[in-house]
Simulated scan of single mutants.
Amino acid sequence: MARTVLQATEDIMEAALNQTEKELDAYEEDPYDLGLQIGGVFIIMAASIAGMGTSYLFGSDADCDRKSALYLILTLMRGVGVGVIICTALIHLIGEAFLPFELSGFDELYPAWPMVFAMIGMFAMAILEYIHHRLEMRSRVLFASERAGEVEMAKSGGKTSKSSALEVTENPVADEPADLDKSGIVDQPISKSLAAKQRSAILVEASILIHSVLIGFDMGLQTKSVWIPLVIAISFHQFFEGFAVAQILLDAKFGFWKKFAMTAFYSLTTSVGIVIGICTYTGEGYDGQSKGANITIGIIDSICGGLLLYTGMSVFWTEWFVVNPEMCLSDSLTPPTMGFLGVFLGMLIMSVIGIWA
Rank of each mutant, 00 (worst) to 15 (best):
E319M: 12
C279S: 13
I300K: 08
D331R: 13
M313T: 08
V323H: 06
E284M: 07
Y281G: 03
V352C: 13
L333E: 14
D287F: 05
C279Y: 02
D287E: 15
I300A: 08
I276F: 13
G305P: 07
G346Y: 00
E326M: 05
M313S: 14
I278L: 13
G346I: 00
F321T: 00
G339H: 04
S332C: 10
N324P: 03
M338N: 07
V272R: 02
P335Q: 11
S332R: 06
S351K: 03
E319K: 12
G285M: 08
I353W: 06
W317Q: 11
I300W: 01
D331V: 06
G342E: 04
G305W: 01
P325T: 05
I303F: 14
V272Y: 04
G277E: 06
L309D: 08
T334Q: 14
P335A: 10
T296A: 15
T311I: 14
F316M: 04
S332N: 12
V315M: 10
P336W: 01
K291Q: 14
P335K: 07
L341F: 12
G285L: 08
D301T: 03
M327S: 03
S314T: 14
S330W: 03
G312H: 02
K291L: 13
T280R: 06
A293K: 07
P335R: 07
I278W: 01
E319V: 01
M338P: 03
L308N: 09
T318Q: 14
L309F: 09
G305I: 01
V272G: 11
I274D: 02
I300S: 06
W320S: 08
I353Y: 08
C304H: 04
T334C: 15
S314C: 12
I278E: 07
T334K: 15
P325N: 10
T280C: 12
D301Y: 04
V272H: 01
G346S: 08
D331Q: 13
G273Y: 02
E284N: 13
S332G: 13
Q289K: 14
V343R: 03
I278V: 13
E326T: 02
T282R: 09
G292F: 08
L345R: 05
S290N: 09
Y286I: 02
T311L: 14
C279E: 11
Q289H: 12
M338G: 06
V322H: 08
G305D: 05
G346N: 10
D301P: 04
I299G: 11
S302Y: 01
G346V: 01
T280I: 02
S290I: 06
T282A: 13
C304M: 07
G285Y: 10
T311R: 05
E319P: 00
G292I: 07
G342M: 02
T334A: 15
S302L: 09
